[in-house]
Design a protein around this nucleic acid. Structure first.
Lengths: 125, 125
DNA sequence: GTCGCTATCTGCAACTTACATCTATATTAT
DNA sequence: ATAATATAGATGTAAGTTGCAGATAGCGAC
């Protein structure tokens, strides 16, 4: 079925908005319920998305070396980040509408095409 | 907002299903109402999708040199192509659900985040 | 011939992502 | 002390889809 965008960026933004602050490893773990495709969000993609978002002013980061284990880069959403998530909401609304139309039309076309051969008894729904 | 997949393949399949037979240039023109993003489907992308679909047995092609102008490669859907469109419908249904959840949660998170500052009077839907 | 429209196809760059790999820190076991 | 493991971040390479520009070619108008 080819590759589909996994919407890594909005998932990261949303997870950050929900958690308040979080580091990459944590986001990667908590993002699971929002996966768009069967495959989960790749850790590497999360880190890259966070870097991109920081360089565009959507998140800020500080190093946290207080706890045990390796240092964590803790991220927080900026106002611009919240705006950006809002923009994503608009875009995704549009996508949902468009893809919805696509599926609806596809179902119609598939049903219309199967009239001839199926001799009308197997209503597939 | 970065690039998003334009769902060129299902759009091509659907347009073919609707028209019965069609050539690339025609599909490229008739596909406009099903665009997923603001940008239309690129002609080059259509031709490439048709080639891919042919090599995977989803469409067949024959040259039509009857009319005036350059020869047209006329495509038609195979049964496998119809199945493939049906698979796309399943996938896109899943995507619509997932992205719908994403937008819903994003709206909630954005509203929850604005409680503090907005002094709670602007109930945004 | 030259211009413009139709029609197909190719080249190159951009973007997101998957997978593997590498580094480094702290804890635990030997 | 050494080794293994879990945590945490980052990079390199390849794959796949797409946008844009342009090449090629047939046909009609001038």
């Amino acid at each position: 079925m080819g590759n589909l965008y996994r919407f890594c960026e909005p998932i990261v933004l949303l997870t950050l908005a929900r958690l308040g602050t979080a580091h990459g490893y944590q986001i990667s773990a908590e993002a699971a319920p929002f996966n768009v495709t069967h495959a989960g969000v790749d850790g590497a993609a999360v880190y890259r998305a966070l870097r991109r978002l920081e360089s565009s002013g959507c998140v800020t980061s500080t190093w946290d070396t207080s706890g045990g284990g390796p240092a964590r880069r803790v991220y927080a959403l900026t106002p611009r980040g919240r705006e950006h998530l809002d923009e994503w909401v608009q875009v995704m609304d549009g996508i949902v509408g468009s893809i919805g139309r696509l599926t609806q039309e596809s179902r119609s076309a598939l049903n219309a095409g199967s009239h001839r051969k199926a001799s009308g008894t197997r209503r597939g729904a």
